Amino acid sequence: MIRRLALLAAFAIPAACSAAPQGGDAAPAATGARPFAMTPVADFDAPWAMTFLPDGRMLVTEKKGEMLLVSADGRQRRTVATVPVDAAGQGGLMDVVLAPGFAQNRQVYFSYSAAGQGGKGVVLARAVLDLAAGGERLRQIEAIYRAYPLVEGDGHYSGRIAFAPDGKSLFFTAGERQKFTPAQDKSGVLGKVLRLTLDGKPAPGNPLAAQGFKPEVWSYGHRNLLGIAFDAQGNLWEQEMGPKGGDEVNLILPGRNYGYPNVSNGDHYDGRPIPDHAPGDGYEAPKVWWNPVISPGGLMIYSGDLFPQWKGDAFIGGLSSKALVRVDLNGTNASKGDQFDMGARIREVEQGPDGAIYVLEDGGRESQGRLLKLTPATGMPAGTAGAGTAGAAR
């Protein structure tokens, strides 16, 4: 399907989403070398996600089910949990995030894929991280939420976690499991953003229960949601893999339908067309989209001082594109920034306590699984940005 860029540029978005989506075949123009130095910190076996402890140590998840506590310099590591996961296909041990009150309660939330009666699904779990020297371990592990229905297959689990700014609820992503229609189905939670209490129950006041949806559903019409984060203004941003084309960055608003599989700026892998987002179609259009794709994996909104020119911007790991992708955020609007060629599949991007940017290589397809620390390049003036190549198709 030929993408109608001129039409997309003229979208009339509802008042809460006033900006037209930006995307298409054009990549940002290259403007020079990467404005950061890359320092290898550690190597992992197919890492998926990471988070920083207040003391600078890191928790890193590996696809096979290992949760690792890693020193700030990467030289020391300890397995703090071995989670029984179903690691086939896109499954495994996935996201890991510290609870808002971690300094007091030592609680850690994480996600993984598991098999059950009738199929497989994504699970949200909670545990307490015991930091006793020499005996560090995740204890009191409990599964607090399981996405449903369980279905056969090994794809599109999603499983990303973000705590609300007030720390009283959390948002959890459930992919449509490559089954298409569950994203629009009111009887389950697949293909949706969920809002839960800290105990994994449906949070009160969710917007769609009165319309017959499950009480935990916040938004729907999503595909494979592999990044979710709040900005400093409290806006909730999400990125997801589109089909053949149409990777997206969305501003997540309560009760909205984001269209999949009824509309998308990509098409089915077998060549069947999917209608594009269009004015007045009743679906929430993405703020930014890519075709060719970037294959997004991981989302971070930068708030540090080490790269002042990027404060408030979103960063996305690129898998097939082997890139670190920057998106300019401006209130509730967004536009493409830089696309830095990293030479390896990037699964995760996080901000360190010192304001450095850390990226995890995926560990597959000529990607070593390294943790890299990005710091400003020597001699690179503040505000300088560089761009890489366009993402290749998955």
Score class of each variant (00 low, 15 high):
271 G>E: 00
267 D>Y: 00
283 Y>A: 02
284 E>C: 08
225 L>H: 01
284 E>F: 03
207 P>E: 06
285 A>V: 08
299 L>I: 10
307 F>D: 14
262 N>H: 09
187 S>P: 05
254 P>A: 13
235 N>L: 11
205 G>R: 01
197 T>I: 09
299 L>K: 09
239 Q>M: 10
276 D>K: 07
292 P>E: 08
297 G>I: 14
299 L>D: 05
256 R>K: 11
262 N>R: 09
290 W>K: 13
292 P>V: 00
301 I>Y: 09
262 N>V: 13
296 P>F: 05
206 N>S: 06
287 K>D: 12
212 G>Y: 03
279 P>D: 15
249 V>A: 04
239 Q>Y: 05
289 W>M: 10
189 V>I: 14
188 G>W: 14
197 T>E: 11
267 D>N: 08
213 F>C: 03
288 V>L: 03
190 L>R: 13
205 G>M: 00
199 D>S: 14
202 P>S: 07
217 V>Y: 13
201 K>M: 13
211 Q>E: 02
216 E>P: 04
224 N>G: 01
279 P>L: 10
230 F>T: 14
205 G>Y: 00
278 A>R: 14
269 Y>E: 12
259 G>R: 00
277 H>M: 02
308 P>V: 04
231 D>S: 11
258 Y>S: 12
235 N>T: 09
185 D>R: 10
198 L>P: 13
202 P>T: 14
266 G>M: 02
263 V>R: 02
220 Y>N: 11
203 A>N: 05
206 N>T: 08
287 K>R: 15
281 D>H: 14
205 G>T: 09
257 N>V: 11
308 P>R: 02
284 E>Q: 12
258 Y>K: 06
222 H>T: 07
279 P>H: 10
309 Q>I: 08
199 D>T: 14
260 Y>M: 09
217 V>H: 01
262 N>P: 01
267 D>V: 11
196 L>H: 01
220 Y>H: 12
299 L>T: 03
297 G>A: 14
235 N>C: 11
291 N>D: 15
190 L>C: 00
184 Q>S: 05
249 V>P: 05
186 K>Y: 07
210 A>T: 08
201 K>S: 15
197 T>P: 13
242 G>A: 08
305 D>Y: 06
297 G>Y: 08
303 S>T: 15
304 G>T: 01
223 R>T: 01
198 L>H: 09
267 D>Q: 09
252 I>T: 14
226 L>Y: 08
251 L>Q: 09
258 Y>L: 13
191 G>C: 03
309 Q>D: 11
209 A>C: 10
199 D>H: 04
191 G>M: 07
194 L>H: 06
212 G>P: 05
188 G>C: 07
208 L>N: 05
302 Y>G: 09
195 R>M: 12
274 I>W: 00
219 S>A: 14
224 N>V: 03
192 K>D: 13
200 G>M: 07
227 G>P: 04
280 G>Q: 03
191 G>F: 12
226 L>H: 03
214 K>H: 11
283 Y>E: 03
210 A>D: 03
259 G>Y: 02
